[in-house]
Design a binder for these strands. Structure first.
Lengths: 202, 202
DNA sequence: CCGCTCTATGTAACTTCTGACATGTCAACT
DNA sequence: AGTTGACATGTCAGAAGTTACATAGAGCGG
């Protein structure tokens, strides 16, 4: 009765990273190492985490009873642990999902654009031309992923991996925007005069 | 000769926030309070900072010799300080600007989409419908700002405030993307079946 | 005259995130 | 036989960022 250690199951409120890990684990059980890999794509296009952040967070989730783990004697000096979401974890995730997000996006490329006129226009134009090229490569990559997903039926909201497709679609759209915007900006900086937005530059 | 305190002007490397503040100060001298206001728009659409972060950072920039300050006896118990970029600060900013940025963007709305199928489809669809509505409002607001800026000649790369316009254009494009994507996602979740991306939903 | 908001600057505690350190197995390649 | 890379888990120091606390004048509305 005297609950010294047992009464935090309802009170515990997780961090965003915690919910991100729970989301990944809804795809199936995984080790910390696997989560570190899985957070790279497609989630990694909009959310990243290092292993040094993931392992402690998994321990916290475990302490909160939101994940279970089984140990399996791994290769290194420590046991390998495979984690799975618990019913409590899934409930917590569901509750968090429907809260309207407030966090502002943060973009370093846009920050640099804010001060673009303080630097050498030629160097800055080159920077944004490179960025446009990179976005072209990424776009091709993402679109290939997308058609593979469609072939696998992951564009169906009934598919448990539909979220991967939804994130990827945001990635595709974002890269298109970056491409257009970077070319426009480079064009402005190179010509030194106003360029209407959205025109394909010659 | 024995430089105990004078040899850090070239070595000092700033934080991203420091460069953001230098960028703001290229528009003209400002107090920490004014910088806190100015970081809200349009830079704030892609980069935010609270005053509790700005004041200590200004002290660091001042210590590095990247900004100067003059005191003016302010309203509160402390003197009001107006900061201005120094030549060293401008040099540092220029050097930082041409380094290709690596930081990945971070988006909570996209993270939630990754786990969309774990929550109640109706509630999630409502979330993204609300998001689409918000982006409509923001888009209208940003476009109004943009046409005001064009009227003021800020779409000219020769204008020192051109960076404001460049950031705003990214804001406009981003909100358009969020709008389309959120409506698509809501449509997927409501109908429960694949919806081709980019179709205006009925 | 009381309270509210805006101006204005700072500190302190806390959470989050990064980068480096630390360890060790196993398979493939050279 | 030696090296590289993938697998696998952790810690620690420090940077970056958030939330709350603290102070105080000036102007305005009630």
């Amino acid at each position: 009765m005297a609950g010294i250690e047992g009464d935090d199951s309802a009170t515990t409120s997780g961090s965003t990273l915690g919910y991100a890990l729970l989301s990944l684990l809804t795809r199936g059980p995984a080790t910390g190492y696997q989560l570190t890999q899985q957070v790279k794509a497609p989630l990694g296009h909009f959310w990243t985490a290092r292993h040094s952040q993931i392992y402690p967070e998994l321990a916290r989730l475990s302490a909160a009873g939101w994940v279970d783990s089984v140990e399996q004697a791994g290769p290194g000096p420590r046991a390998k642990k495979t984690y799975a979401v618990t019913a409590a974890g899934l409930t917590a995730l569901r509750a968090w999902l429907v809260i309207p997000p407030t966090a502002q996006p943060r973009s370093e490329i846009t920050l640099k654009a804010y001060a673009a006129t303080s630097a050498d226009p030629v160097a800055m134009a080159a920077l944004y031309t490179d960025l446009a090229e990179r976005s072209t490569r990424l776009l091709a990559e993402y679109e290939q992923d997308a058609s593979r997903m469609r072939a696998a039926g992951q564009d169906d909201p009934g598919n448990p991996r539909f979220g991967n497709y939804a994130v990827l679609m945001m990635g595709v759209e974002s890269q298109r925007v970056v491409h257009r915007w970077a070319l426009w900006l480079a064009s402005c900086l190179r010509t030194g005069r106003p360029v209407p937005y959205g025109e394909p530059p010659g």
